[in-house]
């Protein structure tokens, strides 16, 4: 189940460079569909408002539901508008064959995460991976950060790097905290790691914190795999990186009693998962609305 959640919700498209590129393209399409369907839903509700108010009044459904749907569609349209614009720019890049990334603003600090193990090079050199004009992936102990990133960078890049690292080294390297989502927790954890490393240095002892040392060949292989996703990463820069946590709840005995409810949460939900789910919900509700317009349901006389 954990693997399933990771593949679908937390880190989709991190297994291979091809999967990464597919995820970026799919995300771009998702933004367009979400934007268009949200706008369509809001317009349809406005145009057929009289019908829906009558239906709501006649069928004991709260009329406020219509307003809720209008707000829901408007919010999602606003959220997806930059993504839809980015998708258009990606398509334009594809048609024109240009590689430029103009108008994305100056590079800045991107997302960061805390790893369950300390990463270091066996030769003691700093552990940094250049991303060819898209910033660099800097690792300091258990902190992994996308530096000099364009337009906020990519959290999924970190997921991709860690997945490739696991594959190359054969070791499990869990991402324990995502800095964008819980920076207090991340800084607290990373401070503990720093303390352990300082203590280790002071005592002249072996690693006090779980540590993974990478040799030069492993670092070169990681660099190559990062370069493979360069074009996809450039396209991803044109899309917004909406980071959320996800929670799934199933009330077995619902409110107001609320005695039993089942829940599962993921600390990070990839935009592909969140926007994909939002799109599915918008399409589902839009489908019902269109059905109501085309085939008005029976209501009591």
């Amino acid at each position: 189940m954990r693997g399933y959640l990771k593949r679908i919700v937390t880190e989709p498209g991190v297994d291979t460079a091809r999967a990464y590129a597919r995820r970026v393209r799919l995300l771009a399409v998702t933004y367009v569909v979400l934007f268009v369907s949200s706008c369509g839903g809001a317009v349809l509700l406005a145009l057929e408002g009289k019908l829906f108010v009558t239906l709501a009044q006649r069928s004991n459904v709260e009329t406020l539901t219509i307003l809720f749907l209008l707000v829901f569609y408007s919010y999602l349209a606003m959220l997806s508008a930059p993504g839809a614009l980015g998708a258009v720019r990606i398509a334009a890049r594809g048609i024109r064959g240009t590689q430029g990334l103009d108008g994305l603003g100056p590079p800045g600090d991107g997302p960061y995460a805390a790893l369950g193990v300390v990463l270091e090079r066996s030769d003691g050199a700093p552990l940094t991976f250049e991303l060819e004009g898209l910033g660099r992936l800097a690792i300091d102990g258990a902190r992994i950060a996308h530096r000099d990133a364009l337009r906020g960078g990519s959290a999924d890049l970190i997921g991709y790097f860690v997945r490739q690292l696991e594959e190359i080294t054969g070791r499990d390297v869990p991402i324990v905290v995502w800095g964008q989502l819980d920076d207090d927790d991340a800084e607290r954890y990373l401070a503990q790691v720093s303390f352990a490393r300082a203590l280790q240095k002071h005592l002249g002892a072996g690693p006090l914190w779980p540590t993974l040392a990478l040799n030069a060949a492993q670092c070169d292989e990681l660099s190559l795999r990062l370069l493979e996703i360069g074009p996809a990463l450039a396209e991803e820069c044109l899309l917004p990186d909406w980071e959320y946590s996800a929670e799934h709840k199933l009330p077995v005995i619902p409110e107001p009693l609320g005695l039993v409810s089942l829940g599962r949460s993921a600390k990070r939900a990839d935009p592909m998962a969140t926007m994909g789910f939002a799109t599915a919900m918008v399409l589902l509700t839009l489908g019902v609305i269109v059905l109501f317009v085309l085939r008005t349901p029976w209501v009591p006389g």
């Binding site: 589902l284 489908g287 059905l291 085939r295 008005t296 349901p297 029976w298 209501v299």
Partner: peptide, 16 residues
């Protein structure tokens, strides 16, 4: 979902 939609149309449609 399509089956639910079809059932709705068949059983819960109002007049046209």
């Amino acid at each position: 979902l399509v089956a639910i939609g079809a059932l709705f149309v068949h059983s819960c449609s109002g007049p046209r």
